[in-house]
Nucleic acid binder design. Sequence first.
RNA 1: GUCCCCGUCGUCCAGAGGCCUAGGACGUGGCCCUUUCAAGGCUAAAACGCGGGUUCGAAUCCCGCCGGGGACGCCA
Length: 486
Amino acid sequence: MPTSPRVRFAPSPTGYLHVGGARTALFNWLFARRHGGTFVLRIEDTDVERSSDEMVEGILDGLRWLGLDWDEGPGAGGSHGPYFQSQRLARYREMAEQLVASGHAYYDYRTPEQIGAEREAAQAGNGDWRHHRGGRGLAADQVAAFERERRPRAIRFLVPEGSTTYVDLVHGPIAFDHDHIEDFVVLRSDGHPTYHLSVVCDDIDMRITHVVRGDDHISNTPKQVLLYGAFGAPLPRFAHVPLILGPDKKRLSKRHGATSVTEYERQGFLPEAMVNFLALLGWSPGDDRELFTRDELVAAFTLEGISGGHAVFNPDKLVWFNNQHIMRLPAEALAGRVEPLLRAAGTWDESLAGDRRPWLLSVLDLLKPRAHRLHDFVTQAQPLLSDVIHYDEAAVARYLAPPGTRAHLAALRETLAALPAFDAATLETAIRTLAEARGVKAGTLIHAARVSVTGRAASPGIFEVLALLGRDRVLARLDAAMAMAG
RNA sequence: GUCCCCGUCGUCCAGAGGCCUAGGACGUGGCCCUUUCAAGGCUAAAACGCGGGUUCGAAUCCCGCCGGGGACGCCA
């Protein structure tokens, strides 16, 4: 019985949660949930200069919006904390010293400037920098002298000769020759760890079993594998997921438009749609299914299903997913998401939460197939929620202005006023009968009616719209429209 | 420059030697439904980067090339 997996998402709070990070988090989350494992959230804030509390909150908000809850980490507790790297500094120093003590690392007294010069010289020569271990093999008295003057020192990992292979869950076996790895710094002269040291220490301490992260870390992995070996710690399984690229095949960035998940929330996307879309960007269940609920994704997810190629972000498909998920969302749930937008637009009324609730839900159901983003509900429901009609000039010119329209509307008004019931079916029969009696196509009355009651040339089915508006409001709008009809 | 990863329709994926006259989805065109706009249905165009092998047989395996991406820091 294998122990349940522990995975982590370890963002550095130097920016908001962008879609690439969100997808990495999603894959980790799906894997944990699929196998009843633990999803750890760790904040890699060792780069104090570029990190901030607001950024941390922004990232947490993004994760919460997507519904990716973490079992251990900020706000969630856990017995492997602290989960902020800035609070683990002492541990990293301890681990680094341990490396020196065991002969896996050494002190380097050179300054960054000195090394930069050496590197340039080397690269100008044969280009092989790795072999310049200038900081190593110092005489004992030299070291003593440096220590006496309390000269700053960094700790460098001593890369052994040879080669290593590890098996990547998405890429298969990856072999690397130690010749291409230089003696990297694990602890800076200011006592701060470098990325390689901190991730490995944390992943060991936090008992991480599967490291699922971006493809850009694939060439860092050899160094980390070496560190695991030096610490005598078991190697976790690695799964490197390909990056998300922009339409120009370049790494997704600001100039490709929105890259922050929060921005997509603002634009009216459903987290369900975002999750579905992101999951299928670089992963496939192995068959042709496309539409997934969160639970279905959990049930279908495997790391092996991640494809090795880079994926280009396709905004059109996101919109399609959004519409699909909107149509599948129960009206009641939808109402909760749309309410804030209606409030902001000034078309919200408290009765919509009370006795007019069923009516609102009918409106939403009617609008669903036409809504690509949440905001579409606001614009399309406007003529139903408000009695302030904005008449579209072109629509009026085309369907109200033609001579004879006023007479049609008058007849329509008379018919509707006398109707025994005001439901869609009754309305349809009445209007079609009227059209026949007046010798015009039903469309003539329908179009005129549409512009009269909505002010627009496009709307949901007119009979449903009329029924939803109710007789009084319809008659009033017909009266108003007759004044501008030809 | 060195090392690593990747390479199927415009895009996202399926394909793990014969089931492939290469399948699905988004987008695009056409048709249907129809009161408009959507949604929905049907349909069309659209791809195995190139060249060598291996094999009776290759999108699938191997090599080279080309192309794309990434990493080479006392950043993460």
